[in-house]
Design a protein around this nucleic acid. Sequence first.
DNA 1: CGTACTATTGAATCGGGTCAACGTCTGTGG
DNA 2: CCACAGACGTTGACCCGATTCAATAGTACG
Lengths: 244, 244
Amino acid sequence: MSGATDCAACPLRSHAGFQSNSPAELAFIQDFRERERSIGAGMPILSEGDTSDRLFTLRAGWAFRHRTLPDGRRQILNFLLPGDFIGLQSEISGRCPHGVEALTAVRLCEFSRDGLWELYRRFPSLGYDITWLASHEEWIVDENLLTNGRRSALERVAMILVHLARRAESVGEGGPEGIVFPLTQQHLADSLGLSLVHTNKTLKRLQALGLHEMAGGRLRLRDPRALQRIAEYYAQPLKSRPLI
Amino acid sequence: MSGATDCAACPLRSHAGFQSNSPAELAFIQDFRERERSIGAGMPILSEGDTSDRLFTLRAGWAFRHRTLPDGRRQILNFLLPGDFIGLQSEISGRCPHGVEALTAVRLCEFSRDGLWELYRRFPSLGYDITWLASHEEWIVDENLLTNGRRSALERVAMILVHLARRAESVGEGGPEGIVFPLTQQHLADSLGLSLVHTNKTLKRLQALGLHEMAGGRLRLRDPRALQRIAEYYAQPLKSRPLI
DNA sequence: CGTACTATTGAATCGGGTCAACGTCTGTGG
DNA sequence: CCACAGACGTTGACCCGATTCAATAGTACG
């Protein structure tokens, strides 16, 4: 758990809009990082209400941020893929308002809380990058909020499939037979603000149209264009001409 | 429209968790700011898809961020109060994914896009503050997403009343006869992911219980505790014992 | 006073939730 | 090798919270 891995090869660096880092910056990051850690699928990385001072970068695997109501209703806020930052909100406000859970087995780089300010001071460009990451994550949450608030179930499901496939591809997890897809339908439902049952039925509807396949923990979009079209705009037409 | 106003007195500085700025920092900000600008109620500050390089701070008034679907369905992402930052996402990604609209007449401080990087470089502490602002805004959007995805209509309406009242008070807009409340029911509906009609009926329901009053552009919470309780948890009970 | 926006209310309808089974796959231990 | 448990997926029947439609009032303003 030390220099085995090289920060220069971190997936974080492949993020679009990211400036390439100088050797000095890389050296600082490498030093800033305290250790690397592995967490199993389904395990919590941060819990709601935590006052922990841990700060992570997701190096490999999938995770998600979520909030849960006292009676168990859960909302997934967004999914985290390699290169995403974890714990910025708790760093900023002292207490983590959301939970973070590993979806697959996960590898994390752990940083110290105090180090963050040091980072801003010594390498403003890295601070800028972190703002970029925060802003990018907010964009994704914005998108999910729009989806939850204003899209129909069919649009929602199509939307999440397209989005997740695109994100997975952008971090190099794509392939001819689709992407690795570790979500259960419960995860989809909790992300889309739908019930499990209705998520299942909607998923089946799209599947029956031949728009996608899900099997063996893999997702393959057979007609991304059509899915995209449905995702973007399938409110009105639904009434006049039902799918299936 | 220049040195008439003093950055040292900016509401931005009253944000909790904000470090107080040094004279040098204040001087830089004052210089960084290009001009102050006023925009009338209902006018757009940024439009969806804009590639503008403007960056603002909200000095006075209310605004909101929103996204709109091609058929007109609109989702309000969050409300902006004095001290909030506007345009960070477009700064970061080059294109503004959401619109920003003035709710009341508004006063803005305008900054140049290029200045932001300069700010990070010369005053890392200010860069840190901006990350804080971004993170804080994301927290609000997270909260709205939870509300839209998993709360009942009654919970949603109670929630937004409590939240907005609290925020307004935190920027010093509170008072014995309540807060200024410039939202129409359409705004509430678009923020909560509900229809206008149902928002109205739900609002009336709470009003009839004596929990709040809305009149003359003012909102007064008559029983914040009860509203808070409903907001936090009114899913199950709704079934067994209907309110009204 | 007319135009336009906002609030209000009832009636009919529907999308999605809830309930309840049942199927399927995997791992585990006897 | 099979019995069993537990997690996940699938499906039908029924119901309800929320939307839609439609019509009526304020209210602000030129």
